[in-house]
Write a protein that binds this DNA or RNA. Structure first.
Lengths: 192, 192
DNA sequence: CCCGAATGAGACATCGACGTCTCACGATTT
DNA sequence: AAATCGTGAGACGTCGATGTCTCATTCGGG
């Protein structure tokens, strides 16, 4: 059937457009539809044929971000090994999508009125579980809640991505910087 | 001279308008000039009499933010006591203005083209100095750069303010949560 | 080779936010 | 009381981004 073939091609193109849009908006959050179209290598008209409007595009990007971050969580295998090792893997896997996530993060707070996508809550829950496991296994301190630890992780990943974007931190140091600070804190430890 | 008297009154009103604008924009970053005027209790016309336009208003807000954060740094007395204690004071003093700072932070990245205000660099330098002192005095680890520690501090304060705004963290726990995580990290310490 | 679907280019209308202007009102000063 | 100043209300024009539409072109399958 040429019909399903057409649909498949559309889907592929859609995916490609989304990726390009994500890359552009990560660098320039205020990019307009014309710039997004140009970045994706298509015309503004075709962009509107794929996505009903800017809102629909952002929604689709949110889904993409959720899927990508979910994939990072999968790749990090959060319930294998000890929680410290799993957290290190999480940071490594999340770093490539950190900039895009930061964009969606700030974009969400501009919607303000509408309900946030359930996908984020599900991702949050997986990270909460990691921190809880670390606490139960005695690796993590218990005087800070998993909710706060999750927020702090997001904050540090976002700050790190931004610092790299601004050239204040080298990308190759990022994983290590985030993981070491988050795990050990600023204080010089006695045990070393 | 009634002239200088008029100027003084204008300045006072200006200050008041700026404070109200800061409060509103902290809650709703997309607020328009009409909403800002209403929040300040003046008409849109008068708002334009005080500030040439939205850009000028944002610039003035940036100055206010720099002044407020600078005041927080002063109040924290960064070069007294040991660096750990000073950092704790800094977090406590910075927390009330964290939301507003976060707004300016995200607002700055939308300008993108223009140069950033020197004031931020001066504030950064003061915090760098605190971290450097902590390293030199042996309180802070030396494998993380003061630049990264500063970015991380900003990230955690911003994430904390947002978490409070979202109701995920209690405001009264914020200081403690930020300071403990930043200083000690997630890992359960052996020394306790 | 022919036909249809998808695309690109551009014109066009819409919409919201912004900035400017005018006018009338109230308060303060003289 | 008269003049002046600051203000509020609102109309008006501008501008950029968005969304829709048309039409010529191109590409691929039949």
């Amino acid at each position: 059937m040429s019909h399903s073939g057409t649909l498949r091609l559309m889907a592929v193109d859609r995916e490609h457009v989304l990726k390009e849009a994500a890359g552009l908006l990560t660098r320039k959050a205020t990019a307009g539809m014309d710039e997004i179209a140009k970045a994706a290598g298509i015309s503004r008209a075709t962009l509107h044929r794929h996505f009903a409007g800017r809102d629909a595009l952002i929604k689709a990007l949110e889904e993409l971000g959720i899927a990508q971050f979910g994939g990072a969580l999968d790749a990090a295998r959060l319930d294998e090994d000890d929680a410290v090792t799993a957290l290190r893997r999480l940071i490594t896997e999340a770093e490539p999508v950190a900039g895009f996530l930061a964009f969606l993060y700030t974009e969400n707070q501009l919607f303000e009125g509408e309900q946030t996508n359930d996908g984020w809550a599900r991702l949050d829950a997986r990270i909460h579980a990691l921190f809880r496991r670390g606490q139960e296994e005695g690796d993590f301190r218990i005087d800070l809640t998993p909710v706060w630890l999750t927020e702090a992780l997001y904050g540090l990943i976002g700050a790190g991505a931004w610092a790299v974007h601004e050239g204040r931190v080298a990308r190759r140091d990022l994983d290590h910087s985030i993981a070491e600070l988050l795990l050990g804190g600023i204080r010089r430890s006695m045990e070393k």
